[in-house]
Design a protein around this nucleic acid. Sequence first.
DNA 1: CATGAATGAGGTTTCATTCAT
DNA 2: GATGAATGAAACCTCATTCAT
Lengths: 218, 218, 218, 218
Amino acid sequence: MSEHFSIEELLRLTDEDVKMSEKQKKVVEAAIEIFADKGFAAASTSEIAKKAGVAEGTIFRHYQTKKDLLFAIVKPTITKFAAPFLVKNFIGEISKQKHEDPEQLMRFILENRYEFVKKNQPVVKILLQEVFFHEEFRGEIRKVIETHAMEKLKELIVFFQEKGEMVEMPPETVLRMIVTSIMGFLFARFILLPDLDWDDEEEKEYTIQFLLHGLMKK
Amino acid sequence: MSEHFSIEELLRLTDEDVKMSEKQKKVVEAAIEIFADKGFAAASTSEIAKKAGVAEGTIFRHYQTKKDLLFAIVKPTITKFAAPFLVKNFIGEISKQKHEDPEQLMRFILENRYEFVKKNQPVVKILLQEVFFHEEFRGEIRKVIETHAMEKLKELIVFFQEKGEMVEMPPETVLRMIVTSIMGFLFARFILLPDLDWDDEEEKEYTIQFLLHGLMKK
Amino acid sequence: MSEHFSIEELLRLTDEDVKMSEKQKKVVEAAIEIFADKGFAAASTSEIAKKAGVAEGTIFRHYQTKKDLLFAIVKPTITKFAAPFLVKNFIGEISKQKHEDPEQLMRFILENRYEFVKKNQPVVKILLQEVFFHEEFRGEIRKVIETHAMEKLKELIVFFQEKGEMVEMPPETVLRMIVTSIMGFLFARFILLPDLDWDDEEEKEYTIQFLLHGLMKK
Amino acid sequence: MSEHFSIEELLRLTDEDVKMSEKQKKVVEAAIEIFADKGFAAASTSEIAKKAGVAEGTIFRHYQTKKDLLFAIVKPTITKFAAPFLVKNFIGEISKQKHEDPEQLMRFILENRYEFVKKNQPVVKILLQEVFFHEEFRGEIRKVIETHAMEKLKELIVFFQEKGEMVEMPPETVLRMIVTSIMGFLFARFILLPDLDWDDEEEKEYTIQFLLHGLMKK
DNA sequence: CATGAATGAGGTTTCATTCAT
DNA sequence: GATGAATGAAACCTCATTCAT
């Protein structure tokens, strides 16, 4: 992938929605709702068709199989979820401006992914549910996340550790703590207990505090 | 219930559902394997029967529906997962002996649940996969965990906070950090990346360190 | 069959209940109830076993197949239903004593069969339901009724007609009117509308009146 | 509903459910044949499909359950069976033209229902067989027959009785005699002994004679 | 492009019957 | 004699997918 895509361009790129007919959009919307609700395997194409207000056959005009429909929905989200880390320039930019301050980095990541999950709740839910069952997803995630993003982040962690600001743990472990804490918050907030009465700003702040205390030296 | 059950006794107790015939055991084993592998909805009873080496009808002699089979497998695990927190005396004991030392408590919980998940990997995986789709599971978890265990733990947290040893956050939030960090580790270790080359003792130690740094005052 | 059986002997004969073990009796009782309720084909042996309080296998120790159980229940009733007409002596007796008076004959038949159906409601219901589906029943009925009873009754009808007391119709047709009227009453009374508030004596009287008016000359 | 429907129009009307595809018609035909032959519970959808020359799934595209198929076949017949009594004007008409003559009325009913049963033998057989097992049928019959038709007929009977032409019995009882005699004839003729060598015109005439003698004064 | 009837493989479940205990 | 676990065929029904219109 070229290194010169802007984020905007990247997102536009993965938003293939643009080329969709009205009916196709309806199909995707209905499928998202039903997949999120009862899971891929328990969802039936006829139910999707009914909810979308199209004929059963119409789905298969756009997606050769039910699985293709799932992939068309979830795969762009995998990419978009990793997007901020993907474009090397972007991380480069970040690290230049903000690496002085690991706190800033963590705040940025949390805030950023919070917004993303908030906006894409159902698809993220589908991804979480189905990642167990589809090697393709795990492969995609591995490819996208590990290869591109992790390296950069690990470099940053090592960089902070060498500056003496961050605790001495294997960078993979540090990464695990960060991801675990952030995803744990988002998971509790949006997936597990979305009906609780959350004070989002406060919880975000606590999560950052916890990470900083847990990972920063002194 | 008598107050003098040890954990060992309790676990043996809940295991004593085991008035199972040979064939029934085979069915349960096969079902666990297949449910864990492809998920409840995508698993077929005929496949389970074949793997168990029994006739398909045999499954339904013991479990009225496929769902009943799932529940029979998963529900005891929910209880057992919460068992260490359930017996009031046990927590009482802990808090008496160890409340001087929150570190001891966290070590205990982590070690304890680590062993549990290690021993029950497939069923825990099934639970994680299916908790999205079966309100019964969420209800059971809510009943078992929140009602009994959480109260006790929250009290402990408040107790530590009042002693000035623990950071000032809502106890629910502290709990979320603890659970998130421990479960995040276990999830990465056993479910998401079980094939990585983990140094378990080291990772457990880091996780504890992270929690202590993140949550303890000074 | 010998001509010297008394009715009592005949009934005792067909009441094989005598040789039944306690469990077998329970099975038959349960089967009657369930067959009458949901029909033979929709009744399951396991349901019968449960209601009878015996093991599933026990049924098949006494009756080789489910169909055998049905036959064991219904066939004696076919015989018993026709019993009053079967024993030649009996009809001979009747005709000697009562042929002066066809009214007496009709009253006797109606009263007699009324008591029988009343006492054997569920089995009669089963017979009516299943006669459509089992040639064996139709064969049995044909054998028992037509061969033995009908001839005698037709003779009687011809006898009355020759005496100028009864309308001139084919005796089969007269028989149809009698059977139809009596069975129609019993069917409405016990099977179709058993919950209505019947004045049985009155309705029996009307039925006799109707038959007499309809079939007697003058 | 307009008051000007003739019976012919009405029957055509209820037949106009017939927006059936070729295959659907085949399914219904096959189902009628098999239901009539072995009863609803003992008929299998796979047998119906085979006889209809369609895939088994095709049945369930048109009828959600096997029971729905049964109802789709039988319910219109219940309505049609009662149709001649349903249209108020029709009975009104009859009573105006023919109430001078109860004989005319009975002849009309017998003739009319004779033709109907003759044309709809298998479905009527199914109805008779299944009415025992499906409360829905009994409910439908009650609704259709009792509510609409019976009242009118009872009024007529009372009318005849007041004119001194008909015997003094409760009108329900008179009705029972009429229905019993007519249905008894039709049942014997078409269901129970259809293979006998019937002289239909003669038997109809005898039935009428029997009813007239039995119910008319002098 | 869209439809929806049709398919047929496969799903879960029921059930009469057998047989070792 | 009685039990009830086990069977496996067959029941009803669902569903992704195809294709003529």
